[in-house]
Write a protein that binds this DNA or RNA. Structure first.
Lengths: 176, 176, 176, 176
DNA sequence: CATGAATGAGCTTTCATTCAT
DNA sequence: AATGAATGAAAGCTCATTCAT
């Protein structure tokens, strides 16, 4: 039951947005009686919080697969997959509802932070000679994270995509 | 009166979001009677559309101040100011309500497009030797636009900023 | 101005009904400023009352053109024209808004009364032998009035009509 | 609950008219919370449609109790009861709100049609000699229906009634 | 008299949440 | 735990009427 409710909410929040989705519609799609949603989630916002908590996972701290001397390839591997385990629908909710509740904003911030951390670490490993000083490397990492996150967002809004390999190559090249 | 309504809506939409702002609250802040809002804006969504139409302006087609041989400086001038005439509150609305109505999404898309176009043009002028081929230059322009727009957005969400000069320098360097 | 307001109200009340016609729409059709209606007619209902007062006229007391020995012809002349001076639109309002205000109901009652009175008088003159006793004659007059008024009403609702000559002929025949 | 809502609406629509009856007043009289009306009847007009659908019944096709040679008695039996199963309040609504929604107009038209049909059939059976030709008989049937329906209406508006037996006798006599 | 913006009460409808079974 | 009717606050919107110019 609980799963069915979350499944329905995920689909509907991604499609129409949190505010525009009545709980009655969630209940109908989930084929559960209306009152049951309140049993599991006392308030409507708790459904969104549960979705974010349980269905978006930031992969923190996993080692980066860095190859010294190949910053472009190293970043490309990062760029191909955000450290974000989430369905396309949950990604849409993560970007769309960042203002709806603090938990969403926090999760998006964590994604950004993790991405910056990984990019910084990957570049440190891949560029052992430290050709770029620390500040430039930090900017590159932030830029790399920004492009990847915003592109995912923009892609959902406009359908336009950027090749992640090309981004990786450019950022790497900027530091050489 | 119309201006007072738009002023209040701008403040409230930026603060709490469109869906979470009742028209009665707009009326109260604007100190106009409730029914007057409907006189000027038949439906609530028309208030948002009017704000976007009248209070966000994408500066299209203005010449880029490019200096051949100095791509970093050229981009830096672009980076310091988005081609977007809008108050901080309107910027917040522009990024936040992209899914609320097509007119907002369209405006955000135009901002992205204009920024890509300017960056591409600036780089073409500043790199006369065409050291980067067209495809790389296109990716660089898209990346530049993405970073700047997303950073403005992320800044509003998290307070974290990236130095636009540093971004310009990095992107320029990537093409040399 | 006053006339323009009444013209517009007549058209609109007949088309959409009194309750469904906002005063603003009357003002627009009449091409007068909204506030002017209240100057001439303090409340909306006063517009309807004025229309009924001024634009429906029950022709009372006029002599009946009765031919002794020809009750059918005598009634036929009555049947061809209700003793009601009113445009088709005002007739529609008269039947439709009978419950909206007492003045309309009173006018419709007067129309019915006058029609009964005339029919009774016409039959008395046309049937000098008093072949029908007074009670039957009264019923015939009421019936005659009812058919004519209801047919006008039904005609407006359904488009179906009855030949008034045939009604006259039948009623007359019933009394012979 | 649904029944309570319809009961209250029936009383109020008959008393003040559909347009002049706020749903809140229906809810109050029915002693149900305001929002519940929308649960059963999504829009206000659906309350009226349900009343007409469920609480006015045109008795169609039932055999007419005709006695050959006694057209007056045959019609009198028809005249004493309209083929309309409806409370006095519903009859008032049926006549009053014919313009408010198509379903009311359709029901009133059906009542008229059924009454004409019955009268025609009754007269055909009761006057086997076919003393009146078909056209006269049709007019008599339409007249009979008109008088009965309008009298019911006029009775509600003015309190004045016609004796249905006398109407039957007159119409029958007109065809002999 | 003419104007149209201003006013606010009241309308229908929506909907998160509660509750009796 | 499951059910769906019940609840009522609040939403967006309409509109008769007023008022300053």
């Amino acid at each position: 039951m609980r799963t069915r409710i979350l499944d329905a909410a995920e689909e509907l929040f991604a499609g129409s947005g949190y505010a525009a989705t009545p709980t009655a519609v969630i209940a109908k799609l989930a084929r559960v009686p209306g009152g049951l949603i309140s049993d599991y989630f006392p308030r409507k916002i708790d459904v969104l919080v549960a979705l974010i908590d349980e269905r978006t996972h930031i992969e923190e701290g996993r080692d980066v697969d860095a190859v010294p001397g190949d910053p472009a390839g190293t970043l490309a591997r990062l760029a191909r997959a955000l450290p974000l385990r989430a369905s396309p629908a949950m990604r849409r909710i993560l970007f769309r509802e960042a203002d709806t509740h603090g938990s969403v904003k926090e999760r998006l911030g964590r994604l950004n932070g993790e991405l910056v951390r990984r990019a910084r670490f990957a570049l440190e490993l891949a560029l052992p000679g430290a050709r770029g000083d620390a500040a430039r490397l930090e900017v590159a990492a932030a830029m790399f994270a920004a492009v990847l996150i915003y592109q995912e967002n923009l892609w959902q809004l406009t359908g336009h995509r950027i090749d992640p390999d090309a981004v990786a190559e450019l950022v790497a090249h900027a530091l050489v």
